[in-house]
């Protein structure tokens, strides 16, 4: 693969990751959001594979396969189950409306660019130049967490955050050591499973998964 080709594909993939993140902010249909998450998972796996080609490391191919399984298949499946059980198809009115959310997303992306300047400066290369994408996805994920009302949306926000970090890890360091990567993936999976159980219990106790109901513990 030529350098230009690599850079173009890399930019395409990264652009795709950022685009899916923004779309998730835009869409209100939960099923659509889960589909976007699948797309993002595939793109992440692609990114890992791309790094693998670049570094010619088989380890990264294994990681890419793992990412594909976890982020594009297992986790969305869990989310779909939550979605099916809950019977709530749409996100309720978010705390910040979509227009403002998109504006905020723009600002957050700008911040991510500003922030990654010192990171890029350490080792300028096409790969690290794409770092802002990872950071932007992290911030967008956090934004989703703060503004979306449904339990499922918050899980999505968390996954978005995690995808952003994964992207950052691939772009900056071509992946963390395998043992760490394994631990992290296991943790993420378990957290999502725990949340799934909790969402189910929440529905049992509260009748819905609107997080505004969780206001009993307070000072």
């Amino acid at each position: 693969m030529t350098d230009t080709g690599y850079v173009q594909i890399l930019d395409l993939v990264c652009g795709g990751i950022l685009l899916t993140a923004v779309l998730m902010l835009w869409r209100r249909e939960l099923a659509a959001i889960v589909r976007l998450l699948v797309v993002q998972g595939v793109l992440l796996a692609l990114l890992a594979a791309l790094m693998g080609v670049r570094e010619s490391s088989t380890e990264l191919f294994v990681v890419a396969a793992g990412v594909l399984v976890l982020k594009a298949i297992v986790l969305p499946a869990v989310l779909r189950r939550v979605l099916r059980d809950s019977g709530e198809a749409r996100e309720a009115e978010p705390l910040v409306n979509v227009t403002a959310s998109l504006l905020a997303a723009a600002l957050l992306t700008l911040l991510a660019y500003g922030l990654s300047r010192p990171l890029v400066a350490l080792a300028p290369s096409p790969t690290t130049r794409a770092l802002p994408v990872g950071l932007a996805v992290v911030l967008l994920g956090f934004f989703v967490l703060v503004t979306r009302r449904r339990a499922l949306s918050q899980v999505v926000g968390f996954l978005l955050l995690d995808n952003g970090i994964t992207a950052t890890a691939f772009l900056a360091t071509a992946g963390v050591p395998l043992v760490v990567e394994l631990g992290v993936s296991l943790d993420v999976l378990l957290v999502v499973l725990v949340m799934q159980v909790l969402a189910a219990r929440m529905r049992l106790s509260f009748g819905r998964t609107d997080l505004d109901g969780l206001r009993e513990l307070r000072d």
Binding site: P177, G183, V184, D187, V191, V194
Partner: peptide, 14 residues
């Protein structure tokens, strides 16, 4: 390994 330490701390949450 600080990464393992991180994973262990996250495991406590779960």
């Amino acid at each position: 390994n600080l990464g393992v330490m991180w994973a262990a701390i996250e495991a406590t949450t779960i």
